[in-house]
């Protein structure tokens, strides 16, 4: 006579195998579950991408505006730029707009650019760029210029040994390169705060939508299989095995859904904004690093959320008495 033994614990690999088989066989139904995850994650990811694109558009616009302002000011001082000579002094780091300006100047036909010393006073205009403090006095920089015109990208830059009342001080021009007045700065700041608040809200709401979508999809996929779970338990499956089966399944479906959802959300955002504003504008200043981080977070988050959402129904199913699981008709 055989005594009662202990059931073997099936290795994780076996659960994985059965889970994969289940997904493959139930492909249509699995797709429905996946699409629940896709929808949630895509909604979240498209919001994140939209924020990043909006930021990129704003940055790019600001840069283009600043560039245009600088060019206009230069032209208003010395007229058409072709055939002119511009002396260039750079102190410290230059901004993106300043670099853009230099690129435009270098491409302007007939315009000569050079260091003040090298040009020996033949320049029509002295352009001072950079964010650092000036290390040479304007007298030296404009030495020899017949009609000294100085354009400075920094309004508040202090020049060493600039004599007040000197002829140079009178011709000095100041650009407001991205350096807004206090009032402007305040306005921008409240706008930015409002935007952050909006982003936060949209973020919270889309996380909720995502969680509900995923939880619902997985809850459905477990409850409609109570009978199957009951049968498996009658045939000798351990509760832990049932639990493992569903967690593996939900992790895989969640991962697939999160990847597709992330791609879909990103693409939709890009398509929407790209078709409205042009792909050049939205990609020029795009924070690619931020986008990648968001995508990775979405994929990881979607997978983990799917597993979390499956824990409750999987536990419930695993603990069911086989006989009553068999009687359920969903």
């Amino acid at each position: 006579m055989e005594q009662i033994g202990k059931q073997v614990k099936l290795p994780l690999g076996r659960a994985l195998q059965i889970a994969v088989q289940g997904i493959r066989i139930r492909f249509g139904r699995s797709l429905v579950t996946v699409s629940g995850v896709v929808l949630g994650v895509a909604f979240f990811m498209s919001n994140v991408t939209s924020q990043l694109i909006k930021q990129a558009i704003a940055d790019e616009r600001e840069q283009r505006q600043t560039l245009n302002l600088m060019l206009t000011l230069m032209k208003s001082e010395i007229g058409d730029l072709s055939g002119k000579t511009v002396a260039l002094a750079t102190f410290g780091e230059t901004t993106v707009s300043e670099r853009d300006l230099l690129a435009v100047l270098r491409k302007t036909p007939g315009l000569t650019l050079g260091a003040p010393e090298a040009l020996g006073g033949k320049a029509h205009l002295l352009l001072v760029l950079g964010a650092g403090p000036a290390t040479a006095s304007p007298d030296i920089l404009t030495a020899g210029m017949a009609q000294p015109v100085l354009l400075d990208s920094l309004a508040e830059r202090a020049y060493p040994s600039a004599k007040p009342g000197s002829s140079l001080a009178q011709v000095r021009r100041e650009l407001f390169f991205g350096r807004e007045s206090e009032e402007q700065a305040d306005k921008l700041k409240t706008q930015a705060e409002q935007a952050t608040f909006r982003t936060l809200w949209i973020g919270i709401i889309s996380i909720l939508v995502t969680i509900i979508g995923i939880a619902n999809a997985l809850l459905m996929s477990v409850t409609e299989r109570f009978r199957e779970i009951g049968t498996m338990k009658c045939l000798g499956a351990m509760s832990a095995f049932i639990r493992k089966l569903f967690l593996i399944e939900s992790a895989m479906l969640g991962f697939a859904g999160a990847v597709i959802g992330t791609a879909l959300g990103t693409l939709l955002s890009f398509a929407g904004y790209g078709l409205t504003f042009g792909f050049g504008l939205i990609t020029a200043a795009l924070n690619v690093g931020g986008l990648l981080v968001a995508a990775a977070a979405c994929i990881a988050g979607g997978t983990v959320l799917s597993m979390l959402a499956a824990i409750y129904p999987a536990n419930f199913a695993a603990r069911m008495v086989p006989a009553s699981a068999l009687r359920t008709n969903v």
């Binding site: 033994g5 059931q7 338990k233 045939l235 000798g236 351990m238």
Partner: peptide, 14 residues
Amino acid sequence: QLDPYELAWLRCRK
């Protein structure tokens, strides 16, 4: 009196 492992074993093989 059986624990879950024994119960599963029973359902599976016995």
